[in-house]
Design a binder for these strands. Structure first.
Lengths: 235, 235
DNA sequence: TCTCCGTAGTTAGAAGCTCTAACTTGAGAA
DNA sequence: TTCTCAAGTTAGAGCTTCTAACTACGGAGA
């Protein structure tokens, strides 16, 4: 069986698709998702506008692919960070994962905004983004599964148990990343970490700290340390 | 001196401006900020497109006004909540303020997204939004100023001192809302609360909890309780 | 080697958008 | 009662997404 992706036509097609995506990202970097113009992208590549419709069904299709690529890149960054500190104590792992997500996000703020925002009138995120988002958060499950809820987090953990019972995919996801941990504990810690990280990072990439004199890194460190304390993470 | 806002011309003008804003908000509610079309708004009011330019300089102008209105509404909601629990212990005040912001946001999710996102290609938030955002967070200063940083938050507080020294408007803002508190402590607690609230609420209004079985209210309560613990708030 | 198919790219154009310019009309002010 | 000026109109430039119909060429098979 001939490798389908290696016929000259297919290779050319893949390359052009890549160039289109790169040019589109550049436009989004300069002016946000609403500024993406297929016409301008085409012109930049020496084509006319309608030619792009041979490569992407429409504008939303292109955006969706960029969003999926974004999730994948974030997941790679998280995984790399997790590997780097695999032998460190859990508390340090949590700090490293938080710092990694922020570092990735501020390196490509327009991509982070793409993942978080509504890029287009009536845009609906396709279902496959859920899986990709879970891959980004996966490494957190393994770390926070080593902790233990206490105080106000107990109620949260109780609710996570219901969620786990209702949704087999979620249960599988947790089991895959934290096989030995109590699933509800890992999930409660991860959801908390997710919300904290997203709050800090999204305020930063949207420039809402503008004119604020503090460094988001300090806030992030403080928040991850506090979470490690609250979850009793050793290290 | 005749009241300028009561000449018939002016009253008519104010009313039409109000109708335009209401129709615009309705469009944004239905399809997000990028879906706002001045043409469609005008048609809905029985006018032709260009007529709107007698009332708003351009599309961004209208958006800016909607954003300012949004901040004002959020500030009113926060202030009302603060008044309602003025006699309660600080911990309960913090919980109430957090719940109030979330309740306001999920009541008008499109407005919250408007405040947080990039509504238009190249849109630049005007400087007056900073003051309005501070009015929203103000009540938190008074509550968290009654606490005390410890552990990992000490480093954050140290950074807040620099910020206070560098920026007189910030110092004034804190003094206005928490005159008797240590300004850096109040600020550190408020920035932390802000980031946590924004993380939880923005994930919710953007539907990123979609298919997640948990109730954001539980996460919010847990996070505010944890913060109250970390700041040693009595209650 | 020659033929033919299909894909890449083209132009033309519909329908929409923001926004400007120039005009008309009618309500309030003097 | 007259005059002024704001409100609203039409026309149109220049942009957008996206469809339809056409051309031309590269690669696969006879």
């Amino acid at each position: 069986m001939t490798d389908k992706s290696s016929t000259p036509r297919q290779r050319y097609r893949d390359q052009v698709r890549g160039e289109i995506k790169a040019a589109a990202l550049e436009q989004i970097r300069a002016g946000g998702a609403p500024a993406l113009s297929l016409n301008a992208v085409a012109k930049g590549l020496g084509l006319t506008g309608p030619a792009l419709y041979k490569y992407f069904r429409n504008r939303d299709d292109l955006l969706t692919e960029l969003i999926c690529d974004g999730y994948d890149a974030a997941a790679v960054a998280m995984r790399a960070a997790a590997d780097r500190v695999a032998d460190a104590p859990p508390r340090e792992q949590l700090l490293a994962l938080g710092a990694a997500l922020r570092a990735w996000a501020i390196g490509v703020p327009h991509v982070y905004q793409l993942l978080a925002g509504t890029p287009s009138p009536g845009y609906q995120a396709p279902p496959e983004t859920t899986d990709r988002a879970r891959a980004v958060l996966g490494p957190l499950l393994g770390v926070l599964g080593q902790g233990d809820c206490r105080g106000a987090a107990l109620e949260l953990r109780a609710e996570m148990r219901f969620w786990l019972n209702d949704s087999p995919p979620v249960e599988e996801w947790v089991k895959a990343w934290a096989p030995d941990a109590d699933a509800a504990t890992a999930l409660a810690g991860t959801v908390t970490a997710w919300a904290r990280l997203h709050g800090i990072v999204s305020l930063e990439v949207q420039g809402l700290y503008g004119g604020m004199g503090h460094r988001p890194a300090t806030l992030l460190k403080s928040e991850m340390e506090t979470l490690a304390d609250a979850m009793g993470l050793p290290g």
